[in-house]
């Protein structure tokens, strides 16, 4: 009886994991397919053709480039803003702090349809032409929240007397920030910016509202379902997957190393 229960539990776990990872596996697998027609939906034969020419389709290549540019720019801006918001919220008590806390959570809980459509109506009211800049603005908007909340969670235990110590030794405010505060909270900021980058790269709904005639990678994939679905889409998706896994692994290793070096000094103080 007991053994049966164990099997059941293992079985359910495997099914659940399969449910999560099967789609990813299929995408990776089909990047090696040699489809019969325009649509890469049925397995035909193994081929490295798509991996040899990942940028064979101009429009696909352009959409990927656009997505990366949007992600890079919005991540940069959101990381800077989000970090300063997090620092201000942890560091100082000021009027409106709780209101800002609430506003930070709002973009996370509001449905994307609402965010996307309201942004679009704002842009239309302002007579702004939707395109690259509106996509970037929209992505910054939701990324700032994620960055601020992630960084804030990571710097809760930051020992602010370190800043006093630096000031005491003759460092002005800029030197204190760049030589002491920033290096110590950097792992949290890196983690937050990776999250923002990933969110920007795969955002569909908000982007759809605000993209104008520009086509990001997710928009291209969605559109490709009608005309043609080449295995290059799978190749690029797999490449993104690999890149994020590698970055994640590297970050984890780096953070473990820093923590080990800092030893007990990072432990929360009594």
């Amino acid at each position: 009886m007991r053994r049966f229960g164990r099997w059941l539990m293992d079985g359910v776990a495997i099914l659940a994991l399969g449910y999560l990872f099967l789609p990813i596996f299929v995408i990776v697998l089909y990047s090696f397919n040699k489809p019969a027609g325009k649509f890469n939906f049925v397995w035909k034969a193994f081929s490295l053709e798509a991996w040899r020419n990942p940028f064979a389709y101009e429009a696909l290549y352009e959409s990927m480039k656009l997505s990366l540019r949007v992600a890079a720019l919005s991540t940069l801006v959101a990381t800077v803003f989000g970090t300063f918001i997090a620092l201000a919220l942890t560091r100082y008590r000021f009027r409106g702090a709780s209101a800002i806390n609430l506003l930070l959570v709002l973009p996370l809980t509001t449905p994307e349809v609402v965010l996307g459509s309201s942004l679009l109506s704002l842009f239309l009211d302002l007579n702004a032409r939707t395109g690259f800049s509106t996509i970037v603005i929209a992505h910054i908007m939701f990324s700032v929240s994620y960055v601020a909340l992630t960084v804030r969670a990571r710097i809760r235990g930051f020992d602010w007397t370190l800043e006093e110590a630096a000031m005491d030794l003759g460092a002005g405010p800029f030197r204190v920030f760049f030589k002491v505060t920033l290096p110590i909270i950097a792992p949290g900021i890196v983690a937050a910016s990776m999250l923002a980058f990933a969110l920007s790269l795969d955002d569909f709904i908000i982007t759809l509202f605000n993209a104008g005639n520009r086509i990001t990678y997710p928009l291209y994939v969605y559109g490709a379902r009608r005309a043609a679905f080449p295995p290059q889409i799978n190749v690029l998706a797999t490449a993104i997957l690999l890149a994020s896994l590698l970055t994640l692994g590297a970050t984890v290793l780096w953070q473990q190393r820093t923590l080990r070096q800092r030893g007990m000094s990072l432990a929360p103080r009594a």
């Binding site: 007397t161 110590a165 630096a166 000031m167 005491d168 110590i184 000094s265």
Partner: peptide, 16 residues
Amino acid sequence: YRRNVNTVFQHYALFP
């Protein structure tokens, strides 16, 4: 940062 006195903090506050 413009006074020439320096402090040893209770919990050292060394830069980790």
